[in-house]
Amino acid sequence: MNSSTEQKRAPSEYQSNLEILMQIPMFSGIPIEPLKLMAYLCKREIFRPGEIIFQQHEMDENAYFIIEGKARLILENDIEEEISEFGESAFIGGLSMFYGMKRLFTLKAVTQVTALMLSREKFQKTLEQFPEVIGKVFEGLVKTVYEWEIRLVGDRNPECAKCRANIGVTLV
């Protein structure tokens, strides 16, 4: 009976969340059922310009997908050092899904940011139900790290001896 009414319905937030999750590389190998559960469990949050999304040294157990807006990554030592900027479709914090960590950086909204947030707790609940997904997620994760290091190796400054010692994350 639903085929006729289905088309008339406005898409729910859940449905658009699902579409977003499907385009995140880390989740790309995951079958639709667990993805649905994740889309159902995640939440949207709005950050105003200047608001802190997560804070250096503080525990943060969320992954973020930026739906709209711009955010800046900052390293706060004695001075604020700008690292990079994230825009639409950036996915940040995937590793937190596996290990609760204190953030090494601060992420601050530059414009109004709408983010999709998934907490470690909820992600782990999903894995509990679909243990077979773990392998896929790891694959996606490792691939991301691998591509990262390819860029790192390409961009490296051959003059800098210290930088040389710091590469090789993919050999972990």
Partner: peptide
């Protein structure tokens, strides 16, 4: 009633085959 059916149907589509866990019901 139609809205209720949509809610039930959608919930079952996501949670239908999972064991009921308190956390899953916070958003339904």
């Amino acid at each position: 009633v139609s809205l209720g059916y949509q809610l039930a149907e959608q919930t079952m589509d996501i949670l239908g085959n999972l064991p009921p866990d308190e956390m899953f019901f916070q958003q339904s």
